[in-house]
Nucleic acid binder design. Structure first.
Length: 120
RNA sequence: AUGGUGGACCGGAUGGUCGCUGGUUCAUUUUAUGAACGAGAGGAAAGUCCGGGCUUCACAGAGCACGAUGGUCGGUAACACCGACCGGCCGUAAGGUCAGGGAUAGUGCAACAGAAAGUAAACCGCCCGCUUGCGGGUAAGGGUGAAACGGUGAGGUAAGAGCUCACCAGCAUGUCAGGUGACUGAUGUGGCUAGGCAAACCCCAUUGGAAGCAAGGCCAAGCAGGAAAGAAGAUGGUUUACCAUCCGGGAGUAGCUCGCUCUCGUCGAUUUCCGGGUAGGCUGCUUGAGGUGGCAAGCAAUUGUCGUCCUAGAUGAAUGACCAUCGUCACUUCGGUGAUGACAGAACCCGGCUUAUGGUCCACCGCUCUC
RNA sequence: CGGGGCGUAGCGCAGCCUGGUUAGCGCGUCUGGUUUGGGACCAGAAGGUCGUGAGUUCGAAUCCCACCGCCCCGA
């Protein structure tokens, strides 16, 4: 029986306070596609927040970013490190492509998790 | 076939798997979780350029100021929108386009050139006089300019001139006919010339209260106040606390004045400055000038009536990903292969306008060729 | 949702309100002079769709309208 690949509200960051905490940690990882800020949350699951600025493009383009990021997290969530709050934002100038977003998310989270352990 | 003009429509369809948002029902039931069912971006959702609905501000009352609109008639909840018609301009035409009221209400503007740029004016020229350079007459001719105070002909004269006359153009004004009207057609009179720019100020007519769903209403939670400035009282009723009138101060009526409302008059309204708390939930929130089909009225915009349908409500913010079949397009070795797009994403809701953009169809016009 | 401002030479600005004759100023660039050479200095030159498109006017950077881009406020 495979684990359910859902994405309810409990797996999202929803308040300005949560976002501020993540940014305050100062730990991040980046590549050609994405930039991710991380913070250990002490829970058994990871939670994702999205920050798509106006510079990323017009409204349809920003929607694409959000949907690709959510899809990437939903489908891969059981292969990713747990107990992390993180905020995803697109790299300046990058184009929203589904495959590269998924690869980038996984690689950056693994890298960020090891950084968190090293820091603590 | 080719070039053009105007208009209408569409914005892929069906099924499956995994997700997301909110709705209804059921189950567990403290929050919540699960299951089933059915719903889930646009023609422009955009720009925010107009007009409304709705809500609040307490009165929306007057005058001034400020803004908007500007052919006529109609449509509409309303408009700067739409329809029909009238007039000017552009186009061979189909058609397009126009802030399209007023220049004898007033003030103003016109560089350079040119003699002169607006109650006209004499540079050259023409004519007369005296005389070798001036005085007078003259707007027919030259030249300048975007624009120069009507055109043609005849009379007239020293030379000329609407100086006079005829016709034409144009202006003002009256009558008749048609039209609801803008206006059109015909005709008379006047005086011979009145120029352009009001997207220059302005005048005229019509019209506009302001702010916006972060409006507004309800609930929960939470905190701490301090400093400075600061007006004028009087009379009457009279159970020393209120009421009434006058006077004065302040606030509101997002410009000013009046008016109106509220409030205070030393036990201190109010204003300014510093500091402190909250940034949660519910509601407004989707059934509406609503869509769609028939019939009727109207040239049309649109309206009436009957039937039928219920069709997004998010809030770190849903509407997505993959697969199959069909459709469409491109390439093609006719087996297939590839693409499935362009502009673009609801945030209180409608009516328009503007801008962006892929395609299909229809009607009409010009030219050439063929039958 | 509401309000305001800007766009002119490579850069920073003026001119716009009140339309007109060659669209100016500073820095920078180029050429020449001066110097052994450079800098500084002196002389001269080049460089402009006035954001885009329509309109009003004889004439538009200027007035009017629409659009594009950028910036800043308020709730």
């Amino acid at each position: 029986m495979p684990e359910p690949k859902t994405f309810p509200k409990a797996l999202r960051l929803r308040s300005p306070q949560q976002f501020a905490n993540v940014y305050a940690s100062g730990i991040y990882a980046a590549d050609q596609t994405l930039v991710i800020n991380l913070l250990a949350n002490g829970l058994t699951t990871s939670r994702m927040g999205l920050s798509i600025p106006k510079l990323s493009g017009d409204a349809p383009t920003r929607n694409k970013w959000k949907r690709y990021c959510r899809e990437a997290f939903r489908l891969q969530q059981h292969d990713l490190p747990v107990g992390i709050d993180f905020v995803v934002r697109p790299r300046k100038g990058a184009k929203p492509v589904a495959d590269s977003v998924a690869d980038s998310l996984k690689a950056l989270l693994c890298r960020g998790a090891s950084k968190l352990e090293a820091g603590s």
